[in-house]
Design a protein around this nucleic acid. Sequence first.
DNA 1: TTACATGCAAACTGTTTGCAAATAT
DNA 2: ATATTTGCAAACAGTTTGCATGTAA
Lengths: 136, 136
Amino acid sequence: MPYLNISHKDRLSQAGLRPTKQRLRLSEWLFTGEDKHFTAEQLHRDVKDGTEPVSLATVYNTLSAFTRAGLLKTVTVDSNRVYYDTNTDAHYHFYDEDGLVLSDIDSRGIEITGLPDLPVGADVERIDIIIRTRKN
Amino acid sequence: MPYLNISHKDRLSQAGLRPTKQRLRLSEWLFTGEDKHFTAEQLHRDVKDGTEPVSLATVYNTLSAFTRAGLLKTVTVDSNRVYYDTNTDAHYHFYDEDGLVLSDIDSRGIEITGLPDLPVGADVERIDIIIRTRKN
DNA sequence: TTACATGCAAACTGTTTGCAAATAT
DNA sequence: ATATTTGCAAACAGTTTGCATGTAA
């Protein structure tokens, strides 16, 4: 949550995105309440009906635009679908492989030691840590 | 490399898989030389021509069978395709996002501290660490 | 001779795209 | 007035599957 009480319209403007009805509806769904982990399909299910329905194509277009603008991040945990995360800070994830549910790991205090040198000519773009869990 | 000099035929038998020509050809490609990281498409490109060609469907079927049998592991780094790894030990990866090439991280000495408690009812299935790099 | 493997083509899933109509600036 | 966005339907990529033929046990 980069700004605590920014309006949905302002968030879009600041990201250089026109505040259309669909984007405002999606922004509302995404950036109200706690951080969210979801797929395009899940989001579409929630916004395809109602006063201001949003089509699947627009959901995809908008998720890409939001991600390009830095409002969202993608998380690669399943090679069949893309997960999105409203938390754009560096952090790690639990992935419940039974329920297919992602959740944040509280990163405070995590330390990784003993990592080897990078391949020459390479810069770290980001580090992903996913703890995959199953019900016991 | 679980057994140093096991024959391809024996490897299949021990995994409970019939040693067909196609599987032997794939086993040869996979388990000769150093550990490999690859996609189904890349493997198919290399085995679709030659004396004993292997079809794309069989490549997919066989990769699934080998993975189920524990001869291969999948690596989730890209939500568009599945990567396979002949190294089935617990270890981590570099992913070159420019070249789309996976490589192993030497895990010896890596330590992660400060991880939070698991969600209740959950067991760790595995921990994935991917260091994503870009050319500098 | 019976169960399993192969391979083609068709099906399927998640995602992207072309384009005409609608909307924001 | 102009550029951008929407949303349908069609296209697309990677993967899976149905089924007839072939092969291993």
